[in-house]
Structures are given as C-alpha cells and as structure tokens.
Simulated scan of single mutants.
Amino acid sequence: MSPTVNHRITLAARPVNRAVQPADFRLDTAPMPVPSAGEVLLRTLYLSLDPYMRGRMSEAKSYAQPVQIGEVMVGEVVAEVVQSNDPTLVPGDTVLARIGWQEYGVLPAKGLIKVDGARAPLSHYLGVLGMPGMTGYFALLDIGKPRPGETVLVSAAAGAVGQVVGQLAKLKGCRVIGIAGEAEKCAYVTGELGFDAAIDYRGKDTDALVAELAALAPQGVDVFFDNVGGIIHDAAMMSLALKARVIICGAVAIYDRLETQDTGARWMRTILAKRVRMEGFLVFDYEPRRAEFLADMTAWLKGGLIRYREDVTEGLERAPEAFIGLLTGKNLGKQLIHVANPSSR
C-alpha cells in the first residue's frame, strides 16, 4: 500500500546567538505532494547534512534566504523518482534534488541531475562526487593554486571537504598539515588519507596552535584552506608565508553567534606585509564546470588516489541529532542520513 503522508522536519525556532538544540526542529506530517505537468514526485534515499544549514536557520544577512519558521529544513538529497509527469525522467531514476529534510518532495524535472548507482554508491553523489567534493576541488585548485613543495594547511581536515582538499594537495606534490578535533581524526588524516602531519586543536589557545605550526611549517603556510574560522583562523594567519593564499570556505566556529557582527582579530597588516591573497568560496559559482570535476574525481577514486569516509545515521527522525553532532565535530567524514533504500524496478 502506498503511503499517504509525508514525514518531514521543519524549523521550529531560531537559535539566536546560541547553539542549536533539538527543540529547534519539529518532526511532522503533511499530505503526500502531487506532481503537476513537468514535475516529478521524489522519494528521499539519502539526505546530506552540511554546516551551511546552520546559517539558513538564522535571519542574519547572508548569500541565501533563511528557512522560515514552519518550513522544511533546506538540504540536498539523492532521491528516487516515484511518479513522473515529464518524459525526461521515469520511475526508478535516481537524481540529486534540493527537497530538504523530508521523505517526499515534488520538483520540476528540468534541472534535476541524474545519478547512476551502478557507477558509484548513491551516497557518494552527496559527498566526494557531490557538493563537498566540488568544493574541495575548485576552491583548492582555482583559488589556492597549490604548487609542488608548498605547504597546505587544512582545517576540519577529517570532514567532508577537508579530507578531499588534503588528498588533492598531496596529488599536487604539496606538504599537507591537517587540523582536526581529536586523536582519532588526526590518526585518520595522517594514516589513511596520507597527510604529512596533523594538529589536534582541542584545549589549545592561539599561541599553542601557532607554536605547533611553527614547528611543522618553519617556512610558513603557503595555502590555508579555512573551513572553521575562530582561533584556528587566527593561528593560521599568524603562520602564513610570503604570498600565501587563504581560502574562506566556512566559519563553523562562529555559527552560533551569527546575529552578532563578527569583528574578531583583523589581519590587514599581515595581508599587506606578506602580500596575502584571501578569497571566499561558494560552490554554486562552479556549477557549469561540474562535468570537469566529475571526470577527474571519478578517475582518482577508481585509481585509488582518493579515499573517502562517510558517517551515516539511520532514519530521518535522527537528522536533528546528527546535525547537532556535525556542528560540534562528532562526525568523522561526510555526514549523511539514510532515509530509504531504492525500490527494485
């Protein structure tokens, strides 16, 4: 018997200048959505959880509109087509879709990206072959422009983006230092991913981090890939080499105070004296080049040159718990929610 209701997770309250709590979300039900002409009904298989979602819970000015109270939390999924009113997709096709934290959704068929579970695990299209992989690939190669022999520093090194960045830097002949939040993560990035060194930032202040960086990179950091902000950013800025490149990809350290202007330390003299280039990165700018990324990353994965770990939580109802864990660094690798298995055609 086909389901008649759609389970979904909506935003119940805004976490203003505080950490996210379970009560900020509500699990509810809604009528099953019905596709119109040119649309498809989708069933979520995997839901991606990403740090940017914390920003969408806030009304602070940003590059995207916030989720409204009572709306479904935003997010990308790998979904299966259940019903199609468009000839380009048929039931059983799997696609990337932005229907958010819910079991079912309706979208126009136009613009959906088909993915092939026979070529790679479906979950990979939300990770190493999806937005995090694209972020690491284009941000490092286009903005960081790493050169053989340079030192690359990556924060959140064991996360979805960081693990890709470090390995790409190694492929480019760089020395790579990762910063992560516990001994297990540091062991993962050096042992399994091949980083040259790792720093556990827990319980350390800026001065302690600067001292460790000075020992590991006495000539300074040439490329800093920043996923975190906060004191890790400050320590990296104090450790840059001449003509370093800084990529601002995320700032999870300050996401719980988005409603307060982020002043922090100011590094104008460092940027001036060392002729540093700093640039922010949003992956949406690179969507027209997705095929280029997929060709390279697929080949590297097939050749065993890129390794990738996923942290999968079972059940849509556990998405808030897993998301809060993501924001506090509990995940190792790409955080996903497994919602359902594909049906047989």
Rank of each mutant, 00 (worst) to 15 (best):
V5M: 15
A198P: 09
R318P: 11
R26Q: 13
D28H: 09
T298D: 06
T4P: 02
L282F: 09
G173Y: 07
L272P: 00
A197Y: 10
P66R: 11
E76R: 13
K302Y: 08
V67E: 06
V189L: 08
V223D: 04
V78Y: 06
P342S: 09
I199C: 11
G325R: 02
A241L: 07
A120M: 02
M238A: 15
Q163S: 10
E212H: 11
A291R: 04
I69W: 07
G38M: 05
F138N: 03
T4G: 07
I248D: 04
A197K: 06
Y286C: 06
R275L: 11
A158M: 04
F281W: 03
G111D: 00
E59T: 15
I179N: 12
R14A: 14
D116P: 01
S343A: 14
K170L: 06
I271K: 04
S48R: 00
V128T: 08
G136V: 03
G130R: 09
V106N: 05
K334I: 08
K145V: 09
I177R: 10
T44W: 04
P22K: 06
R98N: 10
I254H: 12
A12H: 06
G111W: 00
T298H: 03
P148G: 09
Q261V: 07
L47E: 05
L213W: 06
I254S: 15
L216W: 03
R290D: 10
L96E: 00
V154H: 08
G70R: 12
R8L: 10
